[in-house]
Design a protein around this nucleic acid. Structure first.
Length: 572
RNA sequence: CGGAGCGUAGCGCAGUCUGGUAGCGCGUUUGGUUCGGGACCAAAAGGCCGAGGGUUCAAAUCCCUCCGCUCCGACCA
């Protein structure tokens, strides 16, 4: 391909609305252009990368025995009502009506469509197991689209759904996809790590997210160096620590005036004590009933863990009236010692078990209590303690006890055991060999294809631009033709291009009449893995120059034109 | 949805406070000199200053309303 015949427009300056490197480079290198907030057009270079990623996904899914289909973006509301998600998805889903007032959604995902599809086709155990997938544009009405393709309103997702006769089969399907995902990301040149995630409404259902570690990532992940435990912050657990014994046993508690000091930060500053010396008490409403949750002053409540421990369907922070009614004080001064509502349920993080000498809200505005011994002064019994906080850097691993580190990641894929949540709702059943009807066991598996594209850039770039892994590069080789008006030089470049194409290596000849500096800068910005420089001066000195994008100039090889293809094959 | 900021040429921005001829850099086009890491000279094209209303002799600039975008927060299968 010739550069002058390709729609490539690089930018010298960063786009004004981009925050992270990969977003800036996507636009500067001419891969995408913004159409509107959270909506992007893919230009020829971006399209080539997207197609290469799709092809890798496709090959690996097919190799795993999954079959490709495609289902409509426009999905009828009835399907979503069957599972109750028409309402549950709320405003995250784009909803619209046709002229006959029939309701539709622009598919944000496709569990309903696929379950209904399988129900209509699968009748017998002989047709199972079955895994079907599609690559289709998905739509989500994100409250705040961000970071280019990372969180956009419209994105390309590969979604797969497995149907099995029993739990063992579902387990097998799950792990097949898990390993398929490892291969997909590795072939894309990505280091993606599987981390345990929370099953959400599906309870303890098994699920892993695949994350690309990056400072710009939106998700927090806890890692244990010791045993390899990795979990996202919703899920990550901590070993029971000894926070409780940190403060010495003490005299009976006493009231302290702390006028206006509502937050832990304010009271800590007021009293000149560290946040750990405090107990943060928050009033939640769980399924309509108030509950007080106590955690160390320097920690935050994990809503998912709280919900799970209480066995509640929903938990949310209480409003101010509820707080006042339950405790007798306004938010900021509440604590576990004698709340106004004596029947108020109180739970506490496990790290507070046996805590003494703590400062808590007095359940009286502008007062706190000091020297509180939780066992002595509150109604908290052993069964009220559980792991209820978001883990912090340095918390101990629940499996091996070594300290964990918190890192940030970009979620590029997820594998999820669905059980019978969807197949049950749709009555998607098959007949077993005894002619009995059984509900199919499902799994779902997603790869954010467009997000993966950006994650690759985020993981693989330097100050000059993108450094594409050759498996997904828009072109594997750029041939810099320095003297395009000299036909004998151009012929060398064109011959090299032709022989590379003959070997299945895609190459682009930069035949622009630009100065060399401009061409080198653009080649580095776009990030072609291998650069071949063909110029009159070089040819008279014995050949062409070949250099990897990832290497510096000192590694440049001088090669005779005939040997170029061999050399490049060894470099890709 | 709450808070903050920004909408001026394809891109990045100044001008707005203090009303009076719409500017700069990059990119684009033409001609010339250059030619190994984003050259230089000369010329040119390109704008309903986000939209609507108001104030004024006069509005990019002041006032009101709306729309869009970005950031922080809440939210996120």
């Amino acid at each position: 391909m010739k550069w002058t015949k390709t729609l490539i427009q690089t930018l010298r300056e960063d786009p004004g609305d981009a925050e992270i490197d990969s977003h800036k480079l996507l636009v500067r290198a001419g891969l995408v252009r913004k159409v509107a907030g959270g909506l992007y057009a893919y230009l020829p270079l971006g399209m080539r990368v997207l197609r290469k990623i799709q092809q890798i996904v496709r090959e690996e899914m097919d190799a795993a025995g999954a079959q490709e289909v495609v289902t409509p973006i426009l999905q009828p509301a009835d399907l979503w009502r069957t599972t109750g998600r028409w309402d549950a998805m709320g405003p995250n889903m784009f909803k619209l009506r046709d002229r006959g007032e029939h309701e539709f959604a622009l598919g944000p995902t496709a569990e309903e469509v696929f379950t209904d599809l399988a129900k209509g086709i699968v009748n017998s155990y002989r047709q199972l197991p079955l895994t079907i997938y599609q690559m289709q544009w998905k739509f989500r009405d994100e409250t705040r689209p961000r970071f280019g393709l990372m969180r956009s309103k419209e994105f390309l997702m590969k979604d797969a759904y497995s149907f099995d006769v029993d739990a063992d089969g579902a387990d097998k399907s799950y792990w097949t996809m898990y390993h398929t995902y490892e291969r997909i990301f590795s072939r894309c040149g990505l280091k993606a790590v599987p981390v345990q995630a929370d099953g959400g409404d599906m309870g303890d259902s098994l699920t892993h997210e695949f994350h690309v570690l990056a400072e710009a990532g939106e998700d927090g992940i806890a890692f244990c160096e010791g045993c390899g435990y990795a979990a996202n912050l919703e899920k990550a657990e901590k070993a029971e620590s000894s926070d409780g014994a940190a403060c010495p046993a003490s005299a009976p508690y006493q009231e302290v005036s702390t006028p206006g000091a509502k937050t832990i930060e304010q009271v800590a500053a007021f009293m000149g004590l560290p946040a750990e010396a405090f107990v943060k008490s928050l009033v939640y409403v769980a399924d309509g009933k108030p509950v007080m949750v106590c955690v160390p002053g320097d920690r935050d409540v994990n809503d998912v863990k709280l919900k799970r421990f209480l066995g509640a369907k929903s938990v949310a922070l209480a409003d101010f009236e509820t707080v006042l009614a339950a405790t007798g004080a306004n938010a900021g001064f509440v604590g576990p010692v004698k709340p106004a509502d004596a029947s108020l349920r109180i739970v506490a993080d496990v790290s507070l078990k046996g805590a003494t000498g703590r400062i808590v809200g007095a359940n009286k505005d502008d007062y706190h209590l000091r020297d509180v011994d939780l066992a002595r002064d509150t109604s908290l019994s052993d069964s009220c303690f559980a792991d209820l906080t978001i883990v912090k850097d340095g918390d101990l691993c629940p499996h091996c006890g070594k300290p964990m580190a918190i890192k940030r990641g970009i979620e590029v894929g997820q594998v999820f055991k669905l059980g019978t949540k969807y197949s049950g709702a749709f009555k998607a059943v098959y007949k077993n060999d005894k002619l009995e009807e059984r509900v199919m066991i499902m799994g779902c598996y997603g790869v954010g294809v467009s997000r993966t594209l950006q994650a690759i850039i985020e993981q693989s770039h330097d100050k000059d631009g993108i450094v594409w892994p050759s498996s997904v590069a828009p072109y594997q080789v750029v041939i810099e033709l320095l003297d395009p008006d000299r036909s004998e030089v151009a012929k060398v470049a064109n011959d090299i291009e032709a022989s590379l194409e003959a070997f299945g290596v895609d190459a682009i000849v930069d035949d622009r009449a630009e100065r060399p500096g401009v061409k080198f800068k653009d080649a580095d910005l776009i990030g072609f893995p291998v650069r071949v420089v063909v110029g009159a001066k070089g040819l008279s000195n014995g050949g062409v120059e070949i250099k990897r994008r990832s290497e510096d100039k000192s590694k440049t090889r001088i090669v005779a034109p005939e040997a170029v293809v061999e050399t490049i094959k060894s470099l890709l």
